[in-house]
């Protein structure tokens, strides 16, 4: 079997990197005080997901394009979500002059 370009990189390396990226993004979502920073964290998480998907596709089932379709859709959704989310943040900023998610607590008891 030819080794090709991925000679020497076991699958789990990618998975660990993706996991790390995911967790970093997670920290950004949970621990940041700025809504835009939160969204940045979300984008990082989505990227991690993509890495996972493509890695699995490449190592496990490279012959089917199913995973790639999934990846494509993740791209699309990430873009749409980023657009809408940022629009919302801008609108909120205009009205309340703040992008602190902690201040947006109208849903409290």
């Amino acid at each position: 079997m030819e080794q090709g370009i991925l000679n020497g990189i076991p699958l789990h390396f990618f998975l660990i990197v993706a996991a790390g990226l995911f967790c970093i993004g997670l920290y950004g979502v949970l621990g940041r005080k700025n809504a835009i920073a939160m969204l940045m964290g979300v984008e990082l998480m989505l990227n991690a997901v993509n890495i996972n998907l493509i890695a699995f596709w490449r190592y496990v089932r490279p012959e089917t394009p199913a995973a790639l379709a999934f990846v494509a859709f993740v791209f699309v959704v990430a873009a749409a979500e980023a657009a809408v989310g940022l629009a919302l943040i801008i609108s909120v900023y205009r009205n309340t002059k703040s992008v602190d998610p902690e201040k947006l607590d109208q849903m409290k008891f």
């Binding site: 996991a19 790390g20 995911f22 967790c23 997670l26 920290y27 949970l30 621990g31 940041r32 602190d100």
Partner: peptide, 23 residues
């Protein structure tokens, strides 16, 4: 503006824990 919010430490902990579990 402060960088992190009140629960940042807990968030970091949880993230690390998740990372460990996945790894």
């Amino acid at each position: 503006m402060p960088r992190v919010n009140a629960q940042a430490q807990l968030a970091a902990l949880v993230s690390v824990l998740l990372f460990v579990v996945i790894v």
